[in-house]
Amino acid sequence: MKLGALLAFPPAADRQLLPEGRLAGPMPWVIAIMMFLTVLAAAGGLALGEAARTLGAGLADRATVQIVEADAAAREAQAAAALRTLARLPDVTRATRVGEAEMARLLAPWLGDGALGRDVPIPVLIDVTLRPGATARLPELRAALRRAAPAVRIDDHGAALAPVTRLIRLLGRLAVALVLLMATATACVVMLAARAALDTHRGTIDVMHLLGATDVQIARLFQRRMALDALFGGLIGFAAGGIVLLLIGRRLAALGSELVGAVALPGFGWAVLLLLPAGGVLLATLAARRTVLGALKRML
């Protein structure tokens, strides 16, 4: 069955056969509400997916090694040993000591300017970039470092963020589930509407049958009507959802937070969202067709 044939605009006479046309019943509005919620859920899913990717890409393969040792000489010795060890490890692609100036900048908010100059013991920080997937072997890395520098501490950013990432992934999956549930509900609504329409137009259907109309010819009348209703409802719902998304997007941008900023609709997101009304029309058409053909089969 060709998509074009499914969605073909009906000639005037066909349209009149089932005159209780668009907007007459509640179905277009129910579909509009469904589409609105689906657009929000899908956008949420897409944005969260993008956020998980961004966080993952930026932080998952990064770690920070600290040498926490009060004695400056021992600290420097251990730092050198740790750097040597890190350079040997195959899982480490890069290890750089955070310089004095950078440390001063990082600590200034807590210790005030010139803290480094005074006698406060400041740990040595080494920024480590790991090979992708190496976080799993982090314990071995830790053991190796311990041997070289007993005062070592390792912060694995991926591990620190893991609960957040897991939550984001979970929410993303929830969004996908919501979209699927919404599609199912839409199909059910269409089925109910198609059954009601079949009852309303039972007389016309009988006459069409007796004049020699095939089930497919009759089903086409109904599926066209459902497609038009779904198109109307889908576009209304999509427009409403789009407006809400734009407003949310502005608020998020205004927050300017890095973590929240990661929650943004990726570029292809709008294209994906545009598929929803189209998918809705197709879904409605197929659901109506199935329902009507199934019911007609039980008539003579």
């Binding site: 006479a13 009149q16 056969l17 089932l18 006459v207 049958h209 004049l211 003579l300």
Partner: peptide
């Protein structure tokens, strides 16, 4: 069935005209 039904014309006791269609469209229906 449709193929057979198209070879038979029926005047129903209760006419069974499609109420939404004009006389022209009712006659054109077959």
């Amino acid at each position: 069935l449709p193929g057979f039904r198209r070879r038979i014309g029926v005047v129903f006791q209760d006419f069974r005209l499609v109420p939404y269609l004009s006389a022209f469209d009712n006659v054109a229906l077959p």
